[in-house]
Computed example of a mutant assay.
Amino acid sequence: MSLTYLTLEIRRTFRSTRYVVLAVAFPVVLFLLQANVFLQGETPHREQLAGVFMVNMMVYGAFGAALTGGGRLALERAGGWQRQLRLTPLSGGGYLGGKTLAGMLVTLPALILVPVVGVLVEGVSLDPAGWVRVVAGSWLGAIPLVLLGLVIGQFATPDSMQGISILVMMVFGFAGGLFVPIDAMPDWLREVSPVLPTYWLTQIGRGAVTADLSVDLLGAAAVLAGWTVVLGAIVVRRYRRDSARG
């Protein structure tokens, strides 16, 4: 993997206005909006509920950041960049690895900024082990979301990428429990939620703030690992197919 290429990828992302708004500013605004609309000063278990909202918006921000890499990949495919790779020292593995690592790194602002606001504004308080699980666990658990963004970018066109990304975020967000509490969902939607990686990623952080409707950490990690293997295989297979066509 080329450090120069990785640095370029990260810089391009941070310079994107869409990334800053969707993946950094919007999660913070939504978190504060949810906390102030649904939680009042006398709300029972207010701190725990604020922690749940915080985890949900961390995942939402990470998801938005993860999908930005897919948009750039769609543009590069359309422009023939992957064919040009064979004329450069950058290998296919280095290219995909750089995309994945860059996608992981650009999820960090939301995973750090939202908890900071949670502590300073909404009074969320966890022990050190809880914060490690919320922040580090959510970051590692975001790997399948990054790969999902790359999968979309490998199949979508530059014109269709934005629409597909919005649709995927809406479906995975609402059905995964980011905007609607899982216990408030209709029965049929509760059966759909555990299929999605967003559901399991929220479970990693949620287990640190409340025991309600939470699963064990190892169970959530195992499901996300399965998603990582499947999506990673699709990314590699599609890349090889595109390269063979070139």
Rank of each mutant, 00 (worst) to 15 (best):
S2Y: 03
L196Q: 11
E76V: 01
A221Y: 09
E122N: 11
R12D: 12
P186Q: 06
V230R: 01
V116E: 09
W131Y: 00
Q84M: 14
S160Q: 00
F63K: 07
S214T: 15
G246H: 11
T107M: 07
L148M: 06
G80E: 07
F31C: 06
V151G: 07
L218I: 11
G98W: 01
W81E: 02
R206L: 14
P44V: 01
L87G: 04
L90A: 02
L145H: 10
L150D: 11
A74L: 07
L67N: 05
D183N: 09
M170V: 11
I112P: 00
V121N: 05
F31Q: 09
W227A: 03
D242L: 15
L32S: 06
A78G: 03
V106F: 01
L147I: 04
G93M: 15
V236N: 13
T157F: 00
V117A: 10
Y239R: 12
G51A: 14
D159I: 00
P89E: 11
V229C: 04
L39K: 12
S2Q: 01
T210G: 10
G97D: 00
A222R: 00
F179P: 04
A35K: 06
L145G: 05
S91W: 14
I166Q: 13
L145Q: 05
M104T: 00
T228S: 04
T13S: 04
Q162K: 05
A220E: 02
G80F: 11
A129V: 14
A156E: 06
E76M: 06
I112L: 15
E42P: 05
I164E: 02
Y199G: 07
K99G: 06
F53T: 11
L85K: 07
L75N: 02
V235P: 05
A23Y: 04
V21T: 06
T7F: 13
I182M: 06
I164Y: 11
V119N: 08
G226R: 04
G94A: 10
P194N: 12
P89M: 01
D127V: 14
W200N: 00
S243W: 02
W131P: 01
Q40Y: 07
R241L: 15
G69L: 15
T4M: 10
R86V: 12
V168Q: 03
L49Q: 15
L3P: 00
V180L: 15
P158A: 08
V171R: 09
T198Y: 02
L178V: 14
V229T: 12
F14W: 12
L22A: 02
R133M: 11
G93F: 13
G71S: 05
G205P: 05
L217T: 13
S91K: 06
R241N: 03
V151A: 12
Q40A: 15
P115M: 10
T88M: 11
T13N: 04
P144S: 00
P27A: 01
L96E: 09
A78F: 05
Y60N: 08
P128D: 10
A142E: 01
A66N: 12
A211N: 13
S91Y: 10
P144N: 04
F155L: 13
L49D: 02
V119W: 13
G71R: 03
A221S: 14
F63M: 14
R83N: 12
P44G: 03
G41K: 09
R83M: 10
M57Q: 14
F179C: 12
Y239D: 07
L90H: 03
G92I: 10
L201W: 09
Q40N: 14
M185N: 08
L3R: 05
V20N: 08
W139Q: 10
